[in-house]
Amino acid sequence: MAVAVSRDLTVQVMDDVNAVKLIDRQKALRAAIQRGEPKCLGVSQVMLGLMVMSYSIPLHFTIGTEVVNLGVPWWSGLTFIAAGVVAIILDKHCTMKILRVSMVASGASTLLALVAVIIYSVDINRNPELPCVKTSHGLCNDDHYSTMLSRGLKSSLLLFTLAQAAISAVLGFIHFRQRRSFGQYAYLTQDAPLTSTSDLN
């Protein structure tokens, strides 16, 4: 708070200019983050993570390949879910600390998604669909159907993972720009007057 004394010795207590500027910057940060729609992108990350994990369940009943042995859908899906949850939390509680955590989570999600894409691509290339060998009933053998199912599921997982990499990269870029724009005010938040989240809405 600032104090002003006039010539007639009356004292006026005014708002501290720096505190007002800080509160305005906090409101601007919240508005900027809201424009980036972290909640929508976070929900899509969680949904993609759940889809990757659920689509991978039938792979455990087919021929075991590198994707299954390395558990790629599980660790990539959990990473997507974690990054999405952090983005949803950022939408509710907008602070520089959570913004940094969300930026790191998005970066990790993007990196692991790219690793998963490479593993899926190599696995699909190494394990081609086996040719159909007719059985006595006139149908193809089980190995043909098993490899066909496996390749179809891995192709779907590859597309989901590419979508996740794109979403995580976009969200990380948005958070990086916001952190650069408002980063100079991060150290001031410790000395700033406490404001409830309703003040920042």
Rank of each mutant, 00 (worst) to 15 (best):
K97D: 10
Q164Y: 04
G172C: 13
Q26D: 03
L200D: 01
Q45L: 15
L70H: 00
L153N: 09
D16Y: 01
T189E: 13
E129T: 14
G49M: 12
G49K: 13
I118Y: 05
S121V: 03
K21Y: 08
N127C: 02
Y185D: 07
V46S: 08
L130Y: 00
D191Q: 12
L99R: 05
D123I: 03
L130Q: 09
M148N: 14
A113S: 15
V52Y: 09
N201L: 05
A165Y: 01
C140L: 01
A31Q: 15
E37I: 08
L9W: 11
A31H: 13
G138E: 01
A87T: 08
W75D: 06
L48A: 11
I33W: 02
V170N: 10
V170P: 01
I98A: 04
Q26P: 02
Q178A: 06
L90A: 08
V122D: 03
I33K: 03
L90E: 04
R25A: 04
S54H: 00
A28R: 05
V5E: 00
T62P: 04
M148Y: 15
S102W: 05
A87D: 14
V5T: 11
V5H: 00
R151F: 01
L111S: 14
K21R: 13
L171R: 09
T10N: 14
Y187G: 07
W74T: 10
M14H: 04
T10L: 14
S102R: 04
R100H: 14
V115F: 03
N127H: 08
A87C: 15
M148I: 11
M51K: 10
L70N: 07
L171K: 08
G36D: 04
D91C: 10
P193V: 07
C140D: 04
Q164L: 10
F160A: 09
A116I: 05
A2M: 07
W74R: 13
L111I: 11
L149E: 02
C94G: 05
T189A: 08
S121H: 04
I119K: 10
T10Q: 15
A87Y: 09
V20G: 05
N141T: 14
C40W: 09
F61M: 10
V52T: 14
G152D: 11
H144N: 10
D123N: 02
D91S: 15
R25M: 02
A4S: 07
S136K: 14
I81C: 00
V68W: 03
D16C: 06
Q45N: 15
F80Y: 15
F176P: 00
